[in-house]
Design a protein around this nucleic acid. Structure first.
Lengths: 213, 213
DNA sequence: TTAAAAATCACTCTTTAGAGGTATTATGGA
DNA sequence: TCCATAATACCTCTAAAGAGTGATTTTTAA
């Protein structure tokens, strides 16, 4: 049984040390190295080829979300678990959107923490939102679920489809007989609801959801 | 046998008249109305619901390509045949990209012209590039085929996939270790080769070609 | 080995996109 | 009837995208 080969990325040395101490108690984990920011994470990943990266979200130079996106693009098979002190559900969703396999809170020293990590490491299926909620629910300081599940309105769906077809905001405004300001307003709300960054990502979403073809 | 219901859109009255005269000799065509620009084409389409629109490319207010794109978006089943004096192959490709079913040269009064129109009107399959070439080849003034078939280079394909995944030019440049200028250069060439306008349309292309998923 | 193609980078300029905020008007439910 | 949501619109500001041109280097193929 091969141990899981771990890379730890966090800008705080004490945080890295805390994780190291926890994992060293378990012989199915071996720590390959440590990085201090997203850029180092990319370089170390190329160099060490870890099985799992434990990645902080908030970091200088390049944050963990950006690094996750880039690493997953180059090395899709590397598993990345976000670690953070934040119990904000939006951070969790953002992490999943970027391709993270898991999400763990930092300020935990329970056995459950290692169990979850082991589950992420060995499991083939990606972490569902249900499991994510469950993890957050285990810890009392988790905030209530924010209004993430707000569905798109029919007008927003209409705008989404036109955006995903390649029309500019001006063209959409002329198609729907509304002002370009309004189109921008709708698009802003759409991107916010879906936790996406730009219209190309929205186009990906539209294709994957079968909203266009 | 129902006749084909035609809408003619051209900014030159004499051009519309010429087409009307040709079509009135054939009783399987009936002309519903005439428009003078792309905007009128949209309005008249909503009002008259023609089977086929004969659409000029060069027009004031809104040109035929833009109008074609918008009409096909709202009324995908309406057939649009571009009519133009241009024998430039790039115009033809642009027309097909916007969703036109056919492409006919204006300065023709042969029976073949009407035959082609009838073929477009009754045929379910979209006009292939081969047929387009054949039509242009029937007329001696057609220019030689431009370098349209140039395939994408491997580097261009690489950039295409990153663009279609939602990365910004800056992010792509950092991923590929090249300058943002170079990324822009590649993207410009890609869009030009594929006759696309922006990165969202490129994303559509990537999905439809199975280049990403 | 030489010509063509591909890849690279640069500069300017204009348009578009996107973040952030605010506000008004319908409108449909509770 | 009142409240929440949706749809509309405007504002400022910054970043990004895209058009146009040109140029150098490397690679590939004839």
């Amino acid at each position: 049984m091969q141990p899981f080969r771990i890379l730890i990325v966090d800008d705080h040395a004490h945080a890295r040390e805390a994780i190291r101490e926890i994992l060293e108690e378990h012989e199915d984990f071996v720590i390959l190295g440590e990085g201090r920011n997203g850029q180092e994470a990319i370089n170390l990943t190329e160099e060490l080829m870890p099985d799992i990266i434990l990645m902080d979200i908030q970091m200088p130079v390049m944050d963990g979300l950006e690094a996750t996106k880039r690493i997953k693009l180059i090395f899709p098979y590397v598993k990345i678990v976000m670690i953070t002190v934040s119990d904000d559900i939006t951070d969790l969703f953002d992490a999943l959107k970027k391709g993270a396999q898991g999400y763990l809170l930092k300020n935990i020293q329970s056995d459950a923490w290692v169990d979850h990590l082991r589950a992420f490491a060995s499991d083939e299926v990606p972490m569902s939102k249900e499991i994510a909620f469950q993890i957050l629910k285990e810890f009392p300081q988790s905030k209530a679920v924010t209004k993430e599940n707000t569905p798109l309105s029919s007008r927003e769906l209409e705008v989404l489809q036109l955006v995903a077809k390649g029309l500019s905001n001006r063209e959409i405004s002329e198609t729907l007989f509304i002002s370009e300001h309004t189109v921008k307003s709708h698009l802003k709300n759409i991107l916010s609801k879906l936790h996406l960054d730009n219209r190309v990502q929205l186009t990906n979403y539209a294709f994957q959801q079968g909203l266009i073809n």
